[in-house]
Design a protein around this nucleic acid. Structure first.
Lengths: 262, 262
DNA sequence: CGCAGACTTGACAACCCTCAATTATTGTGG
DNA sequence: CCACAATAATTGAGGGTTGTCAAGTCTGCG
């Protein structure tokens, strides 16, 4: 994770990804990367039943620095993004300016489903670290490429997953007390880190307490207090954004709290 | 709505929709209905750019009575359902038996996105009235039918919409007080009724207060109290499940409550 | 070194949940 | 058709969890 992020040290305006002619503007020592269809299939874990390896598609990479806004509500959407490296957050802003964090995409996640219907993004995507994204134009979804069938199927699966994940967040916010929400959040983050091949016992959160609170439907104070409480109980160690999980089962047991209401 | 529902007076086990051979078991006075591709496209508002009208696909209808469980978590999924008539609810049940209502599908809505990834449904679909559904096998999504292209595009749009709708529920549950949630719920139901061509001023809710509470992240008592409060303020009239909206703007203004926290 | 942003901790109050009792409605069997 | 049971809805009292407000600490950066 750390190494991958350090590779990215140039800033490419995401909005220019469609303007291939601008490549010449890039300095030579920071080559613009491209992925093949096969690489996309590998990252998304698409079974390459038939691999004629003849697809001419190439998918552009874009890089952004920490804090960069990849897209905002209203921006034109004609592509999805695969997170190749780094950490991000998606959020929705209501008409009064209140922001709700929706997700924290990481390596391997696909971002941009919110722009499909109206061809305009409804949410905001912000980089929580230096990031590298792969741009997959929506045209590829409808293409007759030999890989498009598997790609279509996989995108549908990923959207289905996203839908179910969102529903579990709804459940969490609707029924679980603060401790259980924070515990579930930590376990979920831990599991994602493990899936990426990093340590699931110690990691550092890229988002603020306020972001976590918004995601879980809590205030930043409650998040902070709950983390301190876990620390006092010996479940975790906390040092600012660094988290060390000491007692996984202790955190998991907190899931049963809502059952006690009976 | 009422008339459509009264047509359905037989019970067909939803699980038998794939067993076409069972048609002969049905009594003659209750014919099993089928829809053509063109009809599906019309219901889903798919632009029929090219209408060779030659697609041989036929989509089976199934009917169920009030209270029937169309599918449960774990049931095999190889089709989506289009609501042709009636009212339903979708819910997710955790391992301790706690149920969270996720949505209230109505005419024109597509149900079953939760079963795409694993080919097994994750949620539960229950009829809140006598219903009629159109069964669209997932195979059609990947077919090379002349209409499949538009169908794929539309399904993607509908899933994108469902994702965004879920995110708005998350926002509601995370930031809005009880009154604003109930007000938004009423307005949302009202709007759906109008879209279906029914009155948006007076209607009757098919779900219980407990269902509404679960959907909004509140208890049934809070829902009941809030409705009574709205009634006292003159915003609505309430008589059990019958609702009459007297002051739409009054309900809409409640959206600003969270902004007062500043 | 100083400032801004992020985090922690405490006190208090508000909102909503829990528990409980009552009424209304729906469904069922004699 | 009525009585009875079961489900649904309303309303009240009280307490708990979490939000709000406030003060102080820590970290990173210019």
């Amino acid at each position: 994770m750390q190494t991958l992020q350090k590779i990215s040290s140039e800033y490419v305006d995401p909005r220019s990804y469609a303007e291939v002619g601008k490549v010449s503007k890039m300095p030579d020592n920071f080559p613009r990367l491209w992925s093949t269809v096969e690489q996309i299939c590998q990252i998304l874990r698409i079974d390459a039943e038939d691999s004629p390896a003849g697809d001419a598609y190439r998918f552009q990479h874009i890089k952004s620095r920490t804090g960069a806004r990849v897209y905002s509500a209203g921006d034109r959407c004609d592509a999805l993004f695969i997170v190749y490296a780094g950490f991000l957050k998606t959020s929705w802003v209501d008409k009064y300016g209140n922001e709700k964090i929706l997700d924290f995409p990481m390596k391997g996640d696909v971002v941009g489903f919110d722009g499909i219907e109206s061809k305009q993004f409804k949410n905001t995507l912000v980089a929580l670290s230096d990031i590298e994204l792969i741009v997959v134009p929506m045209d590829f979804f409808h293409a007759s490429s030999s890989h498009a069938y598997g790609f279509r199927r996989r995108i549908l699966e990923l959207m289905s997953n996203a839908l179910i994940a969102g529903q579990k967040v709804e459940y969490m916010m609707g029924t679980l007390p603060a401790e259980a929400r924070v515990a579930k959040f930590l376990l979920s983050i831990s599991q994602k880190f493990r899936a990426m091949g990093f340590s699931d016992k110690s990691f550092h959160l890229r988002m603020t307490r306020e972001d976590i609170g918004s995601y879980l439907g809590l205030t930043l104070e409650t998040v902070s207090r709950t983390l301190s409480g876990f620390s006092r109980c010996g479940f975790i160690r906390v040092d600012q954004k660094f988290i060390e999980i000491m007692d996984v089962d202790g955190l998991k047991l907190l899931r049963r709290l809502p059952a006690l209401k009976r």
